[in-house]
Design a protein around this nucleic acid. Sequence first.
DNA 1: GATGACTAGTTCATTCATTGAACTGGCTCA
DNA 2: TGAGCCAGTTCAATGAATGAACTAGTCATC
Lengths: 169, 169
Amino acid sequence: MALPSTYADRNCSLARSLEVVGERWTLLIVRDAFFGVRRFGDFAAQLGIPRAVLTSRLKSLVREGVLVRADDGGYLLTDKGIALWPVVRALMGWGDAFYSPAGEKRTTRHDEDGGRLDADGRCAECGALVPVPEIRIEPGPGHQPQPGAADPVSAAINTPRRLLEPIAV
Amino acid sequence: MALPSTYADRNCSLARSLEVVGERWTLLIVRDAFFGVRRFGDFAAQLGIPRAVLTSRLKSLVREGVLVRADDGGYLLTDKGIALWPVVRALMGWGDAFYSPAGEKRTTRHDEDGGRLDADGRCAECGALVPVPEIRIEPGPGHQPQPGAADPVSAAINTPRRLLEPIAV
DNA sequence: GATGACTAGTTCATTCATTGAACTGGCTCA
DNA sequence: TGAGCCAGTTCAATGAATGAACTAGTCATC
């Protein structure tokens, strides 16, 4: 799906975007990166993605400048990657609206003042358009605690925390 | 990619959304539907998608309630489908920002007063959050006219027009 | 400096999806 | 009756995803 010639339409930025983040698993990797996942093994464990596919996706995300390798080998979102937040937010919003009758699965807040963020990422308290590193994400009313599967990465992810903050090693 | 058990994470609306619109081609079909494409043959011609895949994608979009069959057999976006506009807009915005140095490939305006829409879909003239049927889309500064390929569907799509308005038959 | 544990990958056979071209069958209008 | 159009289906070939097993490098410890 990633080949530049695949979605032939030269005049569509949607097609262009999908060439980069439209493949299976890719946006879920990006989501995990927003949640603070950085290491190969943590992505693999959290997503249940075959390791060969993970290798290939991480490589292409680094090649496209969405992720960078940190000094310790971890994968970090670049500014270009962080700019994907509206995409992730829009897809989460749509899923919440149509597939989560009990309410949103995760709530986003302005970490400074605790204000809820609206669909555009604006804080209900202070009205500011909250930058990604100041967004706190926490389980929402539609969240269902997983019975058995309490691996440490999921546990960290389902605890209130700021986006991009590395999960505990 | 569409199987409900594929993205196992029950607590992620992003994963849930991707089960519905995350497969190859699916969002491009939805985009074309926003642009007024309704007929099987027009989707096939515009996207260059294999007909067997198109059949399967349309079926699953109808099953999920994103599209409905009209009386004349055409495919129309439902309200649930129209609710995907922020997703399409976000992906187009990201593609424009990082892959279209000459500027956005398509400009959106409030058809009533001609005001440009910002990233949240708000009109620069009247400040309103413009509903999808009132959005006019037109070639932007980054648009490159295609030399040879002037099929009637592309031609219609690249002419200023309201979203959802059926392309001329 | 050997041992074991941990991490980040690679390899490979199987299964599954996509592709593209050709084909089918219904409908319409002459 | 027959030509043309439209909406699909069929099918062989290719390519990608899957999952399990394997490899290689790093680190700390004995």
